[in-house]
Nucleic acid binder design. Structure first.
Lengths: 114, 114
DNA sequence: AAACATACATAAGAAACTGATGTATATAAT
DNA sequence: ATTATATACATCAGTTTCTTATGTATGTTT
């Protein structure tokens, strides 16, 4: 995650959420999507991404499917049934954490406002 | 930090921000303040807090002052000049990271809205 | 020929945490 | 009286997650 060593565990949530929206993605594609969505501000490094993908697969959240495209190997990941459940869990965990963070850092903050 | 394994890197920001608002706080007080502000949802563990305080002190962000209160020792921390500068830096870093996170996880999200 | 982009992967080391343990005092509950 | 809880500090082994570097391989651009 380049400059940002900020919220531990959010990489898993990012992966799961992107796969919820896309059905099927490969590693490199994920790094590019994140870079694009954040105007280059968050760069997921390979050293962080691949181990995270392997871990999620080992935990039964993702399945893989290898495809050959232009003499290049692509490993596509998709959500399993468990993975689909995990997305909501991880998302509400993260949203609740961010809410609590706002309550600590900005006492004026109320949910639903800026 | 109890249930949250999400807080990595944000603990320093929390400490600095609370000290910006309070001039002077001791460790235990910080844990209680955070617990109170988040309705018990975030609990800062001693194993995380004290090393973080020591590190910030070693980096010149905080100074300490020991006080005796009711036969109990309290170690009060306050921001140094460097510490005061660091608060703004860490805060905008975190806010920008949270913004990017929202852009990844909720494509509908726009800053200034819910 | 060199640099950059695509695409996977591993591995050493750093950093931030968890959970346990330890010391010490004060108060509330059984 | 004794136990549990609260206050208040601290350290430490172990885990997880990250960074940075390295490696393999192909395709395209300079």
């Amino acid at each position: 995650m380049s400059n940002n060593n900020l919220i531990k565990g959010s990489l898993q949530t990012i992966i799961l959420k992107l796969l919820e929206e896309n059905e099927k993605m490969y590693g490199y594609e994920i790094t590019q999507r994140v870079k694009e969505l954040t105007a280059g501000e968050i760069k997921i490094t390979e050293g962080a991404l691949y181990p995270a993908l392997h871990k999620l697969e080992a935990e039964g959240m993702l399945t893989t499917e290898i495809q050959q495209v232009d003499n290049r190997v692509r490993k596509y990941y998709s959500l399993t049934k468990s993975g689909k459940k995990e997305v909501s869990a991880k998302m509400s965990e993260l949203q609740s954490f961010v809410g609590n963070l706002q309550r600590i850092l900005d006492p004026e903050w109320k949910p639903g406002l800026a």
